[in-house]
Amino acid sequence: MITIRDAYKSFNGNQVLKGLSLEIREGEMFALIGRSGLGKSVLLKHIIGLMRPDKGEIFVDDQNICSLRGTQLVAIRQKFGYLFQEGALFDSMTVFENVAFPLREKTAMKESEIRERVSPELEHMGLKNDAHKYPAELSGGMRKRTSLARAMIMQPSIMLFDEPTTGLDPIIGQSILNYIQLCHRRLGFTGIIVTHDVPRVFSIVQKIAMMDDGRIIINGTYDEIIGQGNPAFQQFLSGSIEGPLHYV
């Protein structure tokens, strides 16, 4: 379970998180939506301990990640998988090497065992014939799938997805969401998807939260939120400039 309590964060005087609180239950798929540049990715980096809040607490499985250092932080990070917006693939490594990297670094598995584990994952992601390619030779969708395979290879219990479908055409975008759903069914992780891909993402999540002005302004299931008729949510869905959410 992930619990964020009253988190504040500012960068050079710009307050990004303003007392944000949120709770995500174990095994739940959660969509975090909101306007661009208002701190959704920053929140993900707080959850995984890459950034620390100026004030507030973030609990991951009852451990306050903000107070962890050294080996404790390393240990808790092993629970996580992270899909970066741009993939963050190691450009000096092939697709296979990228996906095998966490196994080579964090386990004592033999090369043959690594191959046995990586090959089905690549096949599962439709990358079987691209294992020898370097990231520069891949399309955007292939890069995302490689990154997804790398994030999933350690079978994490918590997955963070930072805009998994941004920059992809609708068909590839949908295929990525399908992969995420498939992986969730297979591994049962707790997942947070930061995305603008609405309403498509709603089909693969149980709960949705909307972030604005450094806080969570809407939180609930799709039906609950629609039932509330929240104007900010309606505006975000329709992409209208007019409404309570101001153009930044």
Partner: peptide
């Protein structure tokens, strides 16, 4: 973000 990726992979 490749260095961030390293950190996230512990």
């Amino acid at each position: 973000e490749q260095i961030d990726a390293l950190e996230i992979m512990a």
